[in-house]
Amino acid sequence: MARPRDESSPLFAGNAAGTLRLIVYLALALVLMVLDHRNGWLWRVRSMASMVVEPMYRLADLPSAGMRTLSVAFADRKRLTEQNQRLREDLLLANARLNRMAGVAEQNQHLKELLDTQRSLDINVQLARVVGVDLGAWQQRLVLNLGARDGVKPGQPVIDAHGVMGQVVEVLPRTSVVMLVTDPAHAIPVVVDRSGLRTVAYGARDGSGLVLPNIPLAADVQPGDRLLTSGLGGRFPPGFPVGKVVAVAPGVSGMFRVAQVQPAADIDRSEDVLLLHDQAEPDGPPVPVVPAGPPATLAPAPGAANGGAPTAAASASAVRPTLPRATANLPAAASATAPAAAGSTR
């Protein structure tokens, strides 16, 4: 069975043509990497190749989906009953809480209407399932089973029952890719719930959680503090839990303190997540407040202005304004909403 040796596989010496080809291919790969790193057009190629990529993702999901089905099929009855019971209790508790909250929410809504703010507590969500695909060991990414055809857009926040998970970074026709808050390339504006300190939380470089790398030395941050989204930047709506501070230590430079944060969401255990649909406020600075007060036609004499012209906020916070005051404020409120609406469409 002796094979005649040919030129392409020499026993010892290498041939120049092979080396040359290797150099060409390596150079091509390097150029591709640099171009991709600079422009990130891998994703554009991917959405073109999604015809192939998405079925592969579905195929790769089959083993983990099968495991899930099997674990349900072979789970013993007792455990399922227990789980069912627990879920039912949770639902009961949550419903009871919701009922109590409903009244408060309604009151809040009225007050907010009086205050003329655009924010609302309603959330418009879409349920998505996590597709079990391994996108490389260092990647803090998830694949969801909804895509552009289900109305998913890049930038949408993704949450689970406990807090913010991340945001959609890439949308294919039937799947989308989520960057988690623990990705080192991710940053999320947060506010410390206890002290009201605003800062930015980045994904930790070792993938263990989040960090607050630049807390001023004098600022009040302690282990145990809860972090909420601050709503600055306009991408994440305010008030969602992000994580809990586990440790605070002086930074390397000594100019700042650095806090380690444990994410609130079940980053690596969630199977179902929620996609938020309303992207809260438009980007940019808030609309300048128009000095509110009675219109010029109703303005009293300059001498009486000190006592008679209340600000809009002051009059709105009075829950039952007196009748003449309310009528005097109506046109002012209308004139205040008009620029606000103009500002939001900009």
């Binding site: 091509l28 390097l30 591709l32 990497m33 171009l35 994703w43 991917r46 996108l135 490389g136 990647q139």
Partner: peptide, 9 residues
Amino acid sequence: LFDGVLLGE
């Protein structure tokens, strides 16, 4: 392409 890391790596 499947991994979505860096094209060419």
